[in-house]
């Protein structure tokens, strides 16, 4: 039983890996789960992260002092923001009229610090993979745009990826050409394929460090 007072809930293992890979460049992260400064829990879907009932119980967890949520906007940012707004109200917070671009940190009922980040950038549709494509370094731009072309071309040749997942196909195609090939996103940060200091990353890191006070 972990009893980390700082908890971040995310949708999937890819997001968990990406956040750890990115944050490892900015704060002391440690190796085993017990050493993580923030416990990241992957719940499987956005509806599980944004489940009011689950969050009610989470907030009663003993010794919890900070709770962060990261969800993908997916195809409709406004719809996701509406869901987040309802959650904020039900937790006793007063959500702002528009979602803050630098991430949300909100006073809610009770002693717990609470914050939300909507991937990729708190304003557009997309997901963790969309966030990561903005971290492709300048010296890799050629191979990156070629990866995009390949994905489009593959569609014409019968590839079956869904439109909603095109950003996933882009990044994983591109990762397939790195050394070593086909690493997960989290490892891509460790190996230096993705730039942990790109402007998009910086904004996220600021939100993360402010929320978790680390």
């Amino acid at each position: 039983m972990g009893n980390n007072p700082k908890l971040l809930l995310v949708e999937d293992m890819d997001t968990q890996g990406a956040i750890i890979g990115l944050m490892r460049h900015h704060i002391n992260w440690g190796n085993s789960k017990d050493e993580w400064p923030i416990l990241i829990d992957s719940l499987g879907s956005s509806s599980k992260v944004l489940n009011k009932r689950l969050l009610d119980v989470r907030l009663k967890q003993s010794d919890l002092n900070t709770l962060g949520l990261i969800v993908d906007a997916d195809s409709d940012f406004d719809s996701r923001w509406n869901t987040v707004r309802d959650i904020c109200s039900s937790l006793g917070g007063t959500p702002p009229p528009t979602f803050p671009e630098n991430g949300l940190i909100l006073d809610i009922k009770g002693p717990v610090r609470f914050g939300v980040w909507i991937m990729p950038n708190n304003k557009s549709s997309g997901m963790i993979e969309t966030f990561c494509q903005n971290l492709v370094p300048d010296n890799a731009k050629h191979s990156w745009s070629f990866a995009r072309e390949c994905v489009d071309e593959a569609r014409k040749k019968g590839a079956t990826y869904k439109d909603a997942h095109v950003d996933k196909s882009h990044i994983h195609t591109w990762l397939a050409w790195q050394d070593p090939p086909g690493e997960r996103i989290g490892i891509a940060f460790t190996k230096g394929f993705l730039d942990p200091n790109a402007p998009t990353a910086t904004q996220f890191v600021q939100w993360f460090r402010e929320l978790f006070q680390c």
Partner: peptide, 8 residues
């Protein structure tokens, strides 16, 4: 819920 989610 707390038991399923391993909450302390």
């Amino acid at each position: 819920i707390a038991a399923q989610q391993n909450m302390e």
